[in-house]
Structures are given as C-alpha cells and as structure tokens.
Amino acid sequence: MQRSLHIHVADSRPLTADILSAMANSLHVEGISRRFGTLTALDNLSFSVPTGQVVGFLGPNGAGKTTTMRAIFGLTDLDAGTITWKGSVVGQAERRRFGYMPEERGLYPGMLVGEQLQYLGQLHGMGASDAAAASTSWLERLGIADRADSKVEALSHGNQQRVQMAAALLHGPELLVLDEPLAGLDPSGIDDIGEVLTEQARSGCCVIFSSHQLDQVEDLCETVVIIDKGRLVVTGEVDELATSGPRRLVVRVEGDRTASWAEGVAGVSVSEVKGGEVRLVLDAGVDSDGVLQLARSAGRVTEFVFERRRLSELFREAVK
C-alpha cells in the first residue's frame, strides 16, 4: 500500500504522524485480543476511527466485529490491548457520552417507547425534561412520533429498530457505535438510517457501524475498517481504496462483440469480455486517451468509464 493514500494495512508499517494527530480526536483501538476457549475472536487488532466521517466496520460473519464493539463498552473482557477515546483509556465516564446499538436489539419489551427513551437518556446523564424533549424530537425525526405511547413489543421489527436507533442518538453522543444497524431494513429504511448517520458525522460525531454485507454499505461509508478472523485486513478512505491499484476501464464499442482492438496493446490486459463490454486493466504508465483512440478506430464508442474496485473485491484481494 502507498503511504500517500493514508491506507493502513495490518502488520505493515508504523503509524504516520497525520494518523497520530487524527487519533487525538478519535477512537483508537490498540492491539486488542480476546480468546473464548480455543477460539480466537480478536487477534492483536488495531485501528482508529476519525471524527466527522461515517466509518464502516466490515468483515464476514464471525470476523470479530461484535466482540470489538462490545469491548468498546466494556461488555467483553479483553485479554490484551487498550481502547482509548481522545487520548484517554475508555472508562465509565467516557461510555456515558457514547451511543450504542447492540446487534441483538435491547429494549424492555413491555415498557412504553417514550418513557423508555427518556429513561435511557437520563441514564446517560440528561435531565428529565431534556430527555423527554430529545425523545420526542428523535421519534419525529425517525417517523414514529405516533408510537411514543405504544409498548415496544407492539411495534414492527423496523420500528423497533428505529426506537433502538433513537436510544443510541438521544443524548447527543460523541461516539456512535452501531452493530449491524441496517440488517433487516427495507431500502427506504436503509436510506433513512444512512441519512441520520451522515448527518451525525457532519455535526462532529464519530460514527462507526458494522456490516457483513460489504457492497451494500459501500455508498454509505466514507472510511472503512475491514477485519477478518479477528485481524485487520485493510483500513482507509473508501474513495482512495476503490481507486487505488491498477485502473480498471470498461469500454463498449457499437457492433463489436469480440473487442479484438484491445488485444496486444502494451500495458493493457483484457480482464473480461461479456455482452459486448470489455473490462481492461491498465498498467501505471498507460495513457487512457490512447486506449480511447484505439477503441474509436474500431467503431462508435458508447461506453468508456473507469470502474472502482468494489469493497468485496478489495477484501478478497487482501485476504488472498
């Protein structure tokens, strides 16, 4: 990986000065390990989460995402490592300023939605009236204001998820940790939650959420931390990760099904020809204008785009 891209790959190199300065204002996980019997859930995992961005914490099922998030809230004992917030080790006082949405949703089933949110807000240090006002405003923002006097168990799965989200956001947390917040939501639900996460990040909150569906959340994340088997696979800004490495070009020439014009071009290899569309991988020194000229000589060019690497491709390449 190239230093200029601020990409930090596990076991690769020391932290750079700019990353260190970002850490002072963010969550920093340093060498955490956790074993459950013979299973190693976390294996010397280190990463940091900057403020002001939506950070996706990604990895396949069983990668250690939930264990890491639980560790941030002291819900899992660590065998080694530390977790710091703004330079100091995370303790109870810090956690009260965090918001958490656990993977298996946690609310009192028989309690009224509004009262439950107010109670949770107060536990995070809010006054009773502030908590009530915040509860009302978040329920409105998430479109379930009319359910404030319903019991949680009477709500649909999607609406319970919204209440859980409100519980995490209510007290204006400095760090928002959401475990699989998009699981089981319909597309409009995903858009709503995504909008709230982006809004929170823009207002200076440190937002990290987990997902095992890498491509589904690609558009939502600005930075990703991808882990597997308790270890860091890759971390960095999505745009930089997706555009790093060899460039990928997708070209379609009208009437041309074989893409024979692209064969034998120096520095260009044909990755795939499918349905009249050819995928090319360009070496570093190759000028894309030259490739366009060649394509034009074969016929009318109807498609000529650089393609980003998808996060799932990135993951597969990194774990190879």
């Binding site: 639980r70 956690r95 009260r96 958490y100 298996e104 949703r105 609310l107 009192y108 089933p109 949770l120």
Partner: peptide
C-alpha cells in the same frame, strides 16, 4: 428479562 431481551447491553453501556 433484562438479560434475555439484551437490554442489559444498552444499560451497561451507561451504568455499572
């Protein structure tokens, strides 16, 4: 109930 409904995780993120 607090344990089985997992509300304990939300509560313990705020109180001891």
């Amino acid at each position: 109930e607090e344990k089985s409904s997992r509300v304990i995780e939300v509560l313990l993120s705020a109180v001891r």
